[in-house]
Design a binder for these strands. Structure first.
Length: 224
DNA sequence: ACATTAAATTCGA
DNA sequence: TCGAATTTAATGT
């Protein structure tokens, strides 16, 4: 179980719930920590929780047949995922890796299903999130093969600033270039080069240990 | 891989 | 508690 303040802070959807729904939600959530580089779950694991990132950064991805790591999405604090696996009661189809020390919020399946059955606000959030993800995956399927390193990096970063997935409109994120590299499957050096290209185009600003996105829309469409 | 610079931490008053 | 000194982390080439 998690405190009111904690849930409010880590779950944007919680502020639309009724008091009763909110209380049920927070009773069904626990927190767990993961060290940098650690797996939160492997593909094929049964993880009976709906999960959110409370602090840190994780990568959602798979390993291709060639043995290369493919990123399907990056998630920063405030992002939630796994509703597909919970609803279908299936094993996870993707690996979840902590890119730095991370704390996760885990909501048990029963609580998730109760909210799904009873809360209008919760369903509204889920529909919005599923729809947004669908858009991401379509873009991924459509363009990933043609995009160069900078294009893929731009897309991966823009996902971290998706205003539907993260209600928080702050355009700044603390993330090192090394972490961006891990997220995009690039070396730190290559990530640095791509980031400088994007900075020169005024799509984002580089800072020490972080970035500020100046134009999330252009970033999402870079290279198309 | 190496050099530079920013940030975090330690130390002494 | 302040700032200088040192160590560590991140960046740029």
């Amino acid at each position: 179980m998690v405190s009111e303040d904690t849930l409010r802070k880590i779950a944007s959807w919680s502020r639309f719930l009724t008091d009763r729904e909110f209380d049920t939600a927070r009773r069904g959530v626990i927190e767990k920590s993961y060290a940098k580089g650690g797996y939160i779950c492997h593909r094929g694991d049964r993880l009976d929780y709906w999960t959110g990132v409370s602090v840190g950064l994780i990568r959602l991805g798979t390993v291709s047949r060639g043995g290369k790591a493919v990123t399907l999405a990056g998630l920063r604090a405030g992002g939630w995922f796994g509703e597909g696996s919970i609803l279908k009661h299936e094993p996870r189809r993707y690996d979840l890796v902590a890119l730095r020390d991370t704390r996760m919020a885990l909501m048990d399946r029963a609580t998730f299903l109760w909210l799904f059955e009873n809360s209008v606000a919760f369903n509204r959030f889920l529909v919005g999130q599923l729809n947004e993800r669908l858009g991401q995956f379509i873009a991924l399927a459509e363009y990933d093969r043609m995009l160069d390193a900078t294009g893929r990096l731009a897309r991966n970063i823009s996902w971290l600033f998706n205003p539907v997935l993260y209600s928080d409109p702050v355009p700044h994120l603390e993330i090192s270039q090394e972490e961006i590299g891990l997220l995009c499957g690039l070396s730190r050096q290559a990530a640095n080069k791509s980031l400088q290209v994007l900075e020169a185009k005024k799509l984002l600003k580089l800072e020490h240990g972080g970035i500020t996105v100046l134009s999330p829309e252009k970033l999402a469409r870079y290279g198309e």
